[in-house]
Structure formats: C-alpha cells, structure tokens
C-alpha cells in the first residue's frame, strides 16, 4: 500500500504523439470531478494492468498546477526497459479507464529562492513543464537550460520557447552545443536555487560542479527516478508475514512482495523517497543496490534494502516484512 496516497479512477481523454519517442497522455477523473491540487515537480504512480501482472510506474505531472481539470504525463518509449513505457505506448487507448495515485512531490520548488535555475536533460524536462507554469503564474524568476539529443527530440522545446522566450536556453548534442555549466553557475545572483532532472550522469555532473563552485547543498535539488532493472530471479523469505516468494526476472522485489499479498509502504517506486526502506534479517549473497536513498555505508552494511529498485543475488535473503 502506498503511504499517504489513495487511488484515483481516471479515463484517458487524449493521447498525443509528441515526437518519435514521446507520447503525451491526458487523464480526467472518471467521475467528472476536479483532480487534486498539486505543485510543480509532483509525480503520480500509474497502474498498468497487463494481463496477469501489474506494473506501477511513476511519471512527473507536466500540466499546469493552475489547472486541475486534467493531468498530463509524457512517456518516453524505452525499448529495452521492463515494458512499462511500451505498455503505455502500445496498449493504452483513448477512452480507457486507468488507476493513478494521488500526486506526491519529491522535487518541489523552494519558494524562498530569489531565482530558480533549472537544468533538464532529455525527458527530464517534464517536471519543469509544471514548475515553469507555476512560477510564471506567480511572476517567479526562472531560467531553464535544456540539453537534448537533437531538435527533433527536444521534447516541448518549441512550446517552452513560445511561452517563455529568452528564459529558455537549448543545447543540441548533434550540433555539439555544450551547456557552459561552470560559467552559468558562477554568474548566478545570491539566493539562486538549482534544480536538475535528467539522466543520472548529468545529475552527478551538475551536482559535483555546483558543490565545487560553493553552492550549499540546501540550494541544489534534483530528481532521478531509477527504473527497476530486470535481473536474475531470486528467492526471499518474508519473516513477518511468514511467506516465501520468488522475484521474477522482469519483476521488482517490491512488485513480488505485493504479488504475495503483502503491502509495504511506497511513494516513488524509483529509489528516491525512502518510504519502502526494508530491514534485512539475514542474508547470504550480494545486494544489487540501485537506489539514491540509502548512504553508501548503509549499502555496505547489508542491513537495509529499497525493494522498489534493488535486487539480490545469492543463497538466501530474509526480510523484515
């Protein structure tokens, strides 16, 4: 069960192909009511019922927080992932009913900031769509730097430029345009906050450069949902509920626990929120940690695991669930 989130029945009202890789999905409440309010940076978890299995994937809301008649998300097709994005691209049709969670925000704006400096890479643009709408509505001071592979794959770059003009800066890999990060970071007025969403490598690079340039960690915000990785099947004993489960190749540990009828808490299902943190009772083997929540020390200790994204290889694993 997801901590603090309840489910919303929605209907897919529209599906818009944005480019070669990205489709946009519009949801309205099936009962016709208004959707819950959210703030820029929030995500929802979308339930995908695919024959006998249920996938739950988080997606950032990209519609304006000022309008809650509908929610929109953008999904980039990943041909080698565990199939969530392929399900959304190939199986979801307009008019279809789906279940999503209430919005949760793990990447919110710090509204005390004098200025918001945003750095997006690829599909990491989506939370910024909502954040820029929110800030523009309040007259907030922001600047967005967006790196994408090519103009054709610069999802929403045109929309953003039309809305915000010179506040949007684009960098195309295929034209060898580079984000002048050090210069950018050293020319920001005091009181600026930095927001990063994109591939893990980009987030690490920006965080490292900012910290070396003297940006206090309180001013640096980032979001990176780790997608659960497929891996070798493994067996787990759930000590509290007294169950033996097997985690399939394409399944996450969290999904396998849920499939056994046990409901651990979760919020992000992407290794960032900390909700699903689970104590390890005993183990014989090695952990494949994929989360951004536990410290390196905790990873090494073998005492905790984040079942939404992490796996295990070895003889036995007993969890306190």
């Amino acid at each position: 069960m997801s901590a603090g989130t309840s489910k919303i029945d929605v209907t897919v009202t529209d599906i818009v192909p944005v480019n070669e890789l990205v489709k946009r999905f519009h949801f309205r409440r099936t009962d016709g009511a208004i959707l819950p309010t959210f703030s820029g940076g929030a995500h929802v978890v979308v339930e995908m019922r695919d024959d006998d299995r249920t996938r739950l994937n988080p997606y950032s809301l990209m519609s304006s927080p000022l309008d809650t008649t509908d929610y929109t998300i953008s999904v980039r097709r990943d041909d080698v992932g565990r199939g969530g994005s392929l399900f959304m691209h190939n199986r979801v049709k307009p008019g279809q009913r789906m279940v999503i969670s209430n919005p949760v925000n793990l990447f919110s704006l710090d509204l005390r900031a004098r200025k918001h400096l945003m750095i997006a890479g690829g599909i990491g643009i989506t939370p910024f769509m909502a954040q820029t709408s929110q800030l523009a509505g309040e007259g907030g001071n922001f600047e967005l730097h967006y790196t994408c592979r090519s103009e054709a794959l610069g999802t929403y770059a045109d929309v953003l430029q039309a809305r915000y003009g010179r506040r949007i800066h684009l960098y195309h890999d295929d034209r060898d345009e580079k984000l002048p990060l050090e210069k950018l970071l050293s020319s920001q007025p005091l009181g600026t906050h930095l927001y990063i969403c994109g591939p893990a490598g980009m987030i690490d690079w920006v965080r490292r450069t900012a910290s070396e340039a003297g940006w206090p960690s309180e001013t640096v915000h980032y979001e990176h949902f780790a997608a659960p990785q497929p891996g070798k099947p493994f067996d787990v004993t759930l000590a509290v509920s007294g169950k033996q489960i097997r985690v399939g190749e394409q399944q996450s540990l969290l999904e396998a626990i849920e499939a056994a009828g046990v409901d651990p808490p979760y919020l992000c299902r992407g290794g960032v929120c900390g909700q699903c943190e689970t104590n390890v009772v005993s183990y014989d083997g090695k952990f494949l940690h994929n989360d951004h929540w536990l410290s390196e020390e905790e990873h090494r200790s073998g005492c905790k695991i984040m079942p939404c994204v992490s796996r295990f290889e070895g003889k036995s694993l007993v969890l306190e669930r």
Binding site: Q188, L190, G214
Partner: peptide, 10 residues
Amino acid sequence: TLATAHMGLR
C-alpha cells in the same frame, strides 16, 4: 557587498 554577490560566495 551581498547585494551584488553571486552564488559561490561563502
């Protein structure tokens, strides 16, 4: 001094 300072000032 603070009014004209940039991020990176400690």
